[in-house]
């Protein structure tokens, strides 16, 4: 006997929704979301790596701190993003102290001391140094010596953390 199509089903117009199965996608999203919330740091970036330089990488684990920012890029020495001295001039000058940098640092130091007197924000003499990874030691030591003589003896070198 030949198959006869059902007459009832032929006129069945009730919506038969083709539903997308989202459960697996939801699982995935939930895992990603939990993972990202876990790795999310509320501190944000305390130190913004400067343009025009590549920091060296190190296995050090210390987290960054906020401090006065001295950047030694390929062309300029900057304090809080304000250029103060040209690197090529610094390389040529004799002696360890970079005069314009020293003046600028002492200005910041006296400002900080005034803040300390007025508002009690302790002046700790902390400075972070960001240098290009190819910066020669000659230039670096001049910057560090200048910081040391200009009331900022607590220096920290900013580096990228890498896995050991």
């Amino acid at each position: 006997m030949a198959f006869i199509p059902s007459r009832i089903k032929k006129h069945d117009t009730s919506p038969r929704g083709v539903s997308l199965n989202l459960t697996s996608m939801m699982d995935m999203f939930t895992i990603i979301l939990v993972f990202m919330l876990k790795t999310y740091s509320t501190e944000g970036q305390l130190i913004q790596p400067s343009q025009n330089l590549t920091l060296p990488s190190s296995t050090v684990k210390n987290p960054p701190e906020i401090a006065l920012d001295v950047v030694v890029s390929k062309e300029w020495i900057m304090v809080n993003n304000q250029p103060v001295a040209n690197v090529s001039e610094v390389v040529q000058q004799p002696g360890l102290i970079i005069e314009p940098l020293s003046r600028e640092l002492q200005r910041y130091a006296s400002e900080s001391r005034r803040m300390e007197e007025m508002y009690g924000v302790k002046f700790s003499g902390k400075v972070t140094i960001q240098g290009d990874k190819e910066l020669p030691f000659r230039t670096l030591i001049k910057v560090m010596a200048t910081c040391g003589r200009s009331e900022y003896p607590n220096m920290r070198l900013v580096v990228y953390q890498k896995e050991a």
């Binding site: 979301l33 990202m36 919330l37 790795t39 999310y40 740091s41 944000g44 970036q45 305390l46 130190i47 790596p49 920091l55 190190s58 050090v60 684990k61 210390n62 987290p63 960054p64 701190e65 003499g125 972070t128 560090m144 010596a145 040391g148 003589r149 009331e151 003896p153 607590n154 220096m155 920290r156 070198l157 900013v158 580096v159 990228y160 953390q161």
Partner: peptide, 25 residues
């Protein structure tokens, strides 16, 4: 969250200065 995630971790190396350089403090 992806956009705020920090791709590169930044660290700092603390230095212990030779005492003479910090003479003013």
């Amino acid at each position: 969250l992806l956009s705020t995630a920090t791709a590169i971790q930044i660290g700092i190396i603390e230095l212990n200065l030779p005492q003479a350089a910090g003479g003013a403090t």
